[in-house]
Design a protein around this nucleic acid. Structure first.
Lengths: 119, 119
DNA sequence: ACTATAATTGAACAATTGTTCAAATATAGG
DNA sequence: CCTATATTTGAACAATTGTTCAATTATAGT
């Protein structure tokens, strides 16, 4: 029994408007998943490191001071979410930010958290 | 003993460039925390519902079909991260998106996940 | 083929997260 | 003041997540 509160407290018209105009659940869930991928410090540091140019797994491990395995696990997530892309050159795979749209998304997030909160 | 790989595989200059140019750890961790807040389906749905106008906790519970308590818990996170703001009118508190910068950030995330992945 | 190296993968464990349920605030009206 | 209502809060539990360790795949050189 969900405690959706009694009819008297709901602003029915506002609720209807919100229900009518809401974004498809699937899209929102996919977006949440995507944001979840860049909401991890390690992955954000990886993306940040890649902004100045391509790096291999080993380089990233050196930059972040973490194990190659840990980095690789995170890279997989970033790859499958189209946030980074890799190009193979012999034994080595070089990673870069997937596209500038992604870079912009990162910038906006960094911007927001640099602004102080008024209320 | 961390398996930072042997010197031979590191591209030293690239690594130095990345280390020199990297964003402050604190900022990245704060950004990660912020992104974490909007990376949850429930919270994203709350934000989506608020785009068309202010709603109270009770309205949001009705729109999402969830308990008032669950919504309230999530609203707290959204409030303390300056993603939504509330104004009190008597017994009722009406919530809205904090500012248009936040709205833009959401749009970008939704955009990205609507684009298909090439590789 | 055989060896060495770059990178990925799987299982497991610790740590974090989201929801529920019950209880506590805060505001308004009689 | 006492009751009713809107919202918040705390504790607990289930589910998810990130790292480590060990083993595996992929590529290149000899």
């Amino acid at each position: 029994m969900i405690d959706v509160c009694q009819i008297r407290c709901i602003h029915q018209d506002s609720v209807n408007r919100a229900i009518g105009g809401r974004t498809d659940d699937g899209v929102l869930e996919e977006a949440a998943r995507l944001l979840g991928v860049i909401s991890d410090p390690t992955r954000l540091k990886i993306m940040d490191a890649l902004r100045l140019g391509e790096l291999c797994v080993c380089d990233l491990a050196a930059v972040l001071g973490m194990s190659v395995s840990a980095i690789s696990h995170q890279l997989r997530l970033l790859r499958t979410s189209c946030l980074v892309r890799g190009r193979r050159d012999g034994k080595i795979i070089f990673y870069t930010i997937h596209d500038e749209h992604v870079e912009k998304l990162m910038d906006m997030a960094l911007d927001h958290c640099r602004q102080r909160c008024g209320a």
